[in-house]
Nucleic acid binder design. Structure first.
Length: 697
DNA sequence: GAGCACTGC
């Protein structure tokens, strides 16, 4: 790095230059107006500073490991339509590959597209590359993420999230605008990446170059999937990390992690510590590390996605001199954010995963051992600024014999209703024959098709109905799209639009670590006793009445960031509704209409009261519980029938976001499920035998 | 009377 000190000779030089420019100034003044001169100097200064910047950027580019193999890489891409690139951390693949293809002429007949699994990555990489190419962001180099299209007609290099490319392929299936597509970080195997993989194999243009980047572990599998295509290896530039395994299995990983961190801290070695924990709860326990009096000058900083952003920012701030940072993180720190200065990683070896069970239509959020790939990624976090150490709180044999090499891809453990709808709209006839790299369980596919049939998106032959076609337009789960579509006929679309937007954003309510009665009292002000959905509507309307104020949010224990996102989602959905000529009307204060509309899209997720505060699933008979955050919880108001938005298994089977409905609505709106049984005076809704359902699969 | 890893359109 260059440093400038105002020495004597430098001051002399400055004086000389000043005189020189003063002289110039006087001469110019004779011929030109002052303003013109100023403009000229401005331009000149800009040009020279840009030259300096360009030079250093060019030098930086040439210093990257990928530069040494540039020509080889371009040759192999020229000779093959699909190439797997293994690019280690720090190789420069993400910023350079696109530019090399541009320099090699690929942008003369189409764009070079590059997908990223995360929005921030797409934005920041595009910014960097536009600087390296000496152009303004959004011109030659641009990016596109949800809610933000920063590209123009000039754009030749386009970074985007994988979801954007997937949506684009809906509109033009052969990706005509592109001459080359790079799917970066494909080893993360996001749902969108996996669907794109299959589509790329289905009917790929013969002149489209596809470059898939992967980690070493998956490269052979990737190459085989795409038809034994070549693998190209780019070395990385990171520092070595010593890996130390636990000699014996640890019973309590929280305690073990705290002990290990303390040992590092007291050993006198310099550098910050990063501890990986599975969830928020464990992180809060580890924080008590700070209380240990014998640990001087240690700053314990938690980080997880639900943490308010001002507290999140703390991990990036420099600690005071002599203070060591000890960051306690979920797997958010594995890929999503990078902290410099980490020399030690303490890895508990667990993470939380959401796994979908199609048989009962329920997600289970559970703690699982991480995979070897995760473990290596975590260890790598210690080697970014210098040589590091990674302490694994599990044995070497556990690593080798008990951990999977890679994590089970999302497509095999998630509800596929959305994927099925998307593929159907792309004209994929038999989904079970679709070319997935790792096919999802058949049960899962059939269940999703069944759910789409219930919602009227698929007909009895399994083809897309007009309703289904309309549902594809919305970036929503099928039941939510359905609710929006139905609401137009029921005259409450403006209200449902808000509810759908609220449901598309996680965690609206903020609960402080030390729970206060005040917080609960404030919350009760919004509560609509018969419905969480209506409670959400209420919150949004009140926020709107308070001019979308963030102070109002803070005063009412509501996440401002989440509410802003709700507003964005609402506006995007509204645009689609207008475009699809769907009418936007509010039913005002007639909230029964809204409840009925919710019922029309969620009748398949209903529960019946059985005992005090106990519910059973109407279809499966499985006991389900109201979640304690529900407006209906412990209110003494227990309706006979409710529908739920989501069923999640944590410590119990919990229904999240519920609304009271009339039993008769269920029979009326979901006749394929329910019939009214007349038993004396009272009428009961009963489930239609399941054999009936199977006729349609 | 519970507690929610992370993404994305």
């Amino acid at each position: 790095m260059l440093q400038f000190f105002p020495t004597k000779s430098a001051l002399k030089l400055k004086n000389l230059l000043c005189r020189f420019f003063m002289g110039l100034f006087l001469i110019f003044r004779v011929f030109r107006a002052e303003q013109k001169f100023a403009d000229h100097m401005k331009e000149k200064n800009q040009a020279s500073s840009e030259f300096a910047k360009k030079k250093t950027l060019l030098e930086q580019r040439q210093y990257l490991p990928i530069f040494a193999v540039r020509q080889q890489l371009l040759n192999i891409i020229r000779d093959n339509n699909i190439v797997i690139v293994v690019g280690e951390t720090g190789s420069g693949k993400t910023t350079q590959l696109t530019q090399y293809l541009h320099e090699d002429g690929y942008t003369s007949y189409g764009m070079v597209g590059c997908t990223q699994p995360r929005r921030v990555a797409a934005m920041s990489v595009a910014k960097r590359v536009s600087e390296e190419m000496n152009s303004n962001l959004g011109e030659e180099v641009g990016y596109a993420i949800r809610f933000e299209d920063c590209t123009s007609e000039k754009t030749v290099i386009k970074y985007m999230t994988d979801g954007i490319l997937l949506r684009e392929s809906l509109r033009e299936s052969d990706l005509d605008h592109y001459s080359a597509v790079i799917m970066d970080e494909a080893h993360e195997r996001s749902l969108n990446t996996d669907v794109l993989f299959g589509l790329m194999m289905k009917d790929k243009r013969s002149d489209l170059k596809l470059i898939v980047t992967s980690a070493t572990m998956d490269s052979d599998k990737f190459a085989a999937f795409f038809g034994n295509v070549p693998i190209f290896h780019i070395p990385g530039r990171t520092f070595p990390v010593d890996i130390l395994f636990s000699k014996v299995p640890q019973e309590d990983y929280v305690e073990a992690a705290v002990k290990q961190a303390l040992q590092i801290h007291l050993s006198g070695m310099v550098g910050d510590i990063l501890i990986f924990m599975p969830g928020q709860e464990d992180i809060e326990i580890v924080e008590r590390l700070e209380d240990l009096e014998n640990a001087p000058s240690l700053a314990v900083l938690p980080i997880y996605s639900q943490l308010p952003s001002d507290l999140q920012a703390k991990i990036f701030q420099k600690a005071p001199d002599g203070v060591r940072k000890c960051i306690v993180a979920t797997n958010i720190a594995e890929t999503s954010l990078t902290v410099d200065g980490i020399m030690f990683v303490v890895d508990a070896g667990y993470c939380k995963l959401k796994v979908f069970n199609p048989r009962i239509g329920m997600d289970a959020l559970q703690i699982y051992p991480i995979s070897q790939a995760n473990a290596n990624q975590r260890a790598g976090r210690a080697g970014r600024t210098g040589p590091g150490q990674c302490f694994r709180l599990y044995t070497q044999s556990a690593f080798k014999n008990e951990m999977l090499t890679t994590t089970i891809p999302e497509i095999q453990r998630t509800n596929l209703a959305n994927v099925v709808l998307l593929l159907k709209s792309l004209g994929v006839q038999d989904l079970l024959l679709f070319h997935f790299m790792d096919p999802p369980p058949e049960d899962n596919m059939l269940n999703s098709m069944y759910q789409l049939w219930i919602l009227g998106a698929l007909d009895n032959t399994g083809s897309l109905t007009p309703t289904g076609r309309l549902m594809v337009e919305f970036p929503l789960d099928p039941a939510l799209s359905k609710m929006l579509i139905v609401s137009c006929d029921m005259g409450c679309s403006a209200d449902i639009l808000i509810i759908v937007s609220m449901l598309s954003v996680p965690s609206i309510f903020y609960r402080p670590k030390v729970p206060s009665i005040h917080c609960d009292q404030v919350r009760e002000k919004f509560s609509v006793p018969e419905s969480d959905h209506l409670t959400y509507l209420n919150v949004y309307l009140q926020w709107k009445n308070n001019n979308y104020s963030s102070i109002w949010c803070n005063d009412h224990f509501i996440h401002t960031k989440a509410m802003r996102k709700v507003r964005e989602v609402r506006s995007q959905l509204k645009d689609i509704m207008v475009q699809q000529k769907m009418n936007l009307v509010s039913c005002g204060s007639d909230w029964d209409v809204i409840r009925k509309c919710i019922c029309a899209a969620y009748f398949h997720q209903a529960a019946k009261l059985k005992g005090i505060g106990e519910y059973v699933n109407v279809r499966t008979g499985m006991p389900c519980h109201l979640h304690p955050t529900s407006a209906l919880f412990g209110m003494g108001y227990t309706p006979d029938y409710i529908i739920y938005h989501e069923l999640v298994m944590t410590t119990k089977e919990y229904m999240q976001c519920v609304t009271a409905v009339d039993g008769e609505w269920l029979a009326e709106l979901g006749p394929m499920f329910y019939s009214i049984k007349h038993a004396g005076k009272s009428r009961q809704v009963s489930s239609v035998p399941p054999e009936f359902h199977n006729q349609h699969l």
